[in-house]
């Protein structure tokens, strides 16, 4: 996987063949130039999330062969984001992320948007670099982490050219975290954990926070912990940009295609 993205060259630096080790320029267009290990230069299209569009994020947590089959049965839609779950990352490492990225890109016919759910808590930069090299377009950090860690994480994500995501799981007041952060993350995840949902049914997804955060900060909001069509509908109705669905796909991997299509109908 190490040969995947080696060096990012900005548009102006193509003729000069200089090595770029600092911050890559993030162009407005959805392409960059990449130089591969063999020296070949290629124009590389990648997926940027568009504003005013809703996405369905499918978290994959099963074993690698099953995940491959699941991706193969998904409809090749622009509006699907693949998330590589934390247990999956901890079992297969960055090579697992690379494999998922390749499968999903092969299915789409162009580079797909893959989120690596790293859940960084401390010193996340090595993990971020590894995930970016493996082909992830976004990585997550816990909102519970120390503020220093989160802001370093966001800077390193920008340096690696990927979207930074802050996961607000178990954070009582996401505003308190966001107001201390400079620069702001690209995506904020409002989260209801799996374990807490199983053991404590009273806890609901904090849908009221979506409009409050979007009104104050220019960030993309995604909501995790949706399980039913009803929950996804109310999430999208409340202005969330991304709905993260995990359990239905985990429990019925053979029904991937139908589930994804019916969820996509809800996510408008």
């Amino acid at each position: 996987m190490s040969t995947f993205r080696i060096r990012v060259l900005s548009k102006d630096e193509i003729g000069t063949k200089t090595r770029v080790y600092g911050l890559p320029v993030r162009p407005e267009a959805n392409w960059v130039y990449y130089r591969y290990a063999n020296g070949q230069l290629s124009k590389y299209f990648f997926m940027r999330l568009e504003k005013r569009k809703c996405y369905l994020q499918i978290a994959l947590n099963r074993s690698l062969p099953e995940v491959r089959q699941m991706i193969a049965s998904l409809p090749p839609s622009d509006r699907i984001i693949i998330e590589v779950g934390t247990p999956f990352v901890k079992v297969y490492g960055s090579s697992g992320i690379g494999m998922v990225y390749q499968c999903w890109s092969a299915k789409l016919g162009r580079p797909g948007y893959v989120v690596a759910d790293l859940k960084c808590m401390d010193r996340g930069y090595t993990e971020v670099a590894a995930a970016a090299a493996a082909g992830a377009s976004a990585a997550t950090c816990l909102g519970l982490a120390p503020i220093e860690t989160i802001s370093e994480f966001i800077k390193h994500c920008a340096a690696a050219g990927i979207d930074s995501t802050v996961d607000m799981m178990n954070v009582e007041f996401p505003f308190e975290v966001l107001q201390k952060l400079r620069p702001l993350p690209d995506i904020v995840v409002l989260h209801r954990g799996v374990d807490e949902h199983d053991l404590n049914r009273e806890r609901s997804i904090p849908l009221h926070m979506i409009r409050r955060i979007k009104g104050t900060y220019p960030v993309t909001i995604s909501v995790a912990g949706c399980e039913t069509f009803r929950e996804v509908t109310s999430t999208v109705f409340n202005d969330a940009d991304i709905a993260i669905v995990w359990r239905p796909f985990y429990e019925e991997p053979h029904k991937m295609a139908e589930l994804a299509e019916s969820f996509l109908k809800v996510v408008i």
């Binding site: 901890k90 079992v91 297969y92 790293l118 010193r123 090595t126």
Partner: peptide, 12 residues
């Protein structure tokens, strides 16, 4: 360590 596990997986 955490970076080792997240990069190499259970192999670490």
């Amino acid at each position: 360590g955490t970076p080792l596990i997240k990069i190499y997986g259970a192999e670490a």
